[in-house]
């Protein structure tokens, strides 16, 4: 089981802030593809990967990052702090 969290418009488009997912995905991209196949709202949220950022266990990561040992994956748009 892995915790998947969503922020900003990704959270709004998917319709929930957090969920637990049973997955055998080896990389972030594998997980994205599993989610996209799940329901149209996921497919829509993940349609343009270049508009998204990902964090693995609260550290920014790439979409080809491995998921081995990871507990929490977060998907969100580019950050707008400051």
């Amino acid at each position: 089981m892995i915790d998947v969290v969503y922020f900003a418009w990704v959270r709004e488009r998917i319709g929930l802030p957090q969920e637990q997912i049973e997955t055998k995905a080896k990389t972030v991209m594998d997980l994205v593809n599993e989610l996209r196949a799940k329901e149209p709202r996921y497919d829509a949220a993940f349609a343009d990967i270049s508009a998204l950022r990902v964090a693995v266990d609260q550290e920014l990561a790439d979409f080809d990052a491995p998921l081995a040992g990871a507990r929490e994956i977060a998907f969100f748009p580019p950050m707008t702090g400051g």
Binding site: F7, A8, A55, L60, A74, F76, P77, P78, M79, T80, G81, G82
Partner: peptide, 9 residues
Amino acid sequence: LKSRAPFWK
């Protein structure tokens, strides 16, 4: 902070 701290406006 603008681009690498996890805030969304």
